[in-house]
Write a protein that binds this DNA or RNA. Sequence first.
DNA 1: ATATCTGCCTGCTCGC
DNA 2: TGCGAGCAGGCAGATA
Length: 271
Amino acid sequence: MPELPEVETVVRGLRAPLVGRTITGLWTDWPKALRPHTPDDFAALLTGQTVHAITRRAKYILCQLDDGLLAIHLKMTGRLYVSGAPESGDRWVHVRFTLDNGQYLHFSDARRFGRVYLAPTLDDFAPGLGPEPLEDDFTPAVLRDRLARRQRALKALLLDQAFLAGVGNIYADEALFRAGLHPRRAASTLTDDETHRLYDSIRAALRAGIDYEGASVNWYRKPDGTAGKSQEHFFVYGRDGQPCARCGQPIIKIRVAQRGTHYCPNCQPER
DNA sequence: ATATCTGCCTGCTCGC
DNA sequence: TGCGAGCAGGCAGATA
């Protein structure tokens, strides 16, 4: 599942083939993926525009155009890659961009959850995103203030993109393990020390994910088609029944906020 | 206002 | 081997 580290890896991999390129065409067999325009309107607005920069905000891939923003959200199973042929043999390509150098940008998405946006600004399709966890303006004090007076479980808050941008199910579990905090712990009950631990752990888990170029648990691949290695370094995600790397007790899986949640009952006690 | 629930989607795994 | 059930889950939109 592409989260901040996976999306960041995709962004870095797309810069070389895409920045400076002009988009000359658009094909889709899944109009619902395009927001908010119809395919014809979308293509008319997009073609002829040059990609000047590719950045990331939360889990959105942002392509800065001459006029406005082309944004892509990979959701669960989305993949992006550039190749020299329009037919890639990939049955799940539902949107394809033609580039001025004869190459093609393919958006493959088995589950069809992914979306492609064309809008003047990010706020037009993704308003109200929380802070970027790896930016300098995200500080322990910011996290403390946002946790205060919230009764929700830590796991639920970490998944909430309005609370903090970019964290998903994998890195939420990994961050809570690193912090030694139970996923169901009520946000407002954290001590200053625990808040600092959570802050450090969120950033450490995300930075590790980026360093290992994302987690190829199932669908995620880098734009060059190879797998990331982040999953080889998980402490808890997908490791239910296996021994905790720190204490040897079995990792267990529960449901928190309708999400599969993995943790060590010994290293992350309930209270 | 905050918190929780439902629907969107389909590949994949598991049990029979 | 075939088949149905259940699971995976980010996010928009609805509901409590």
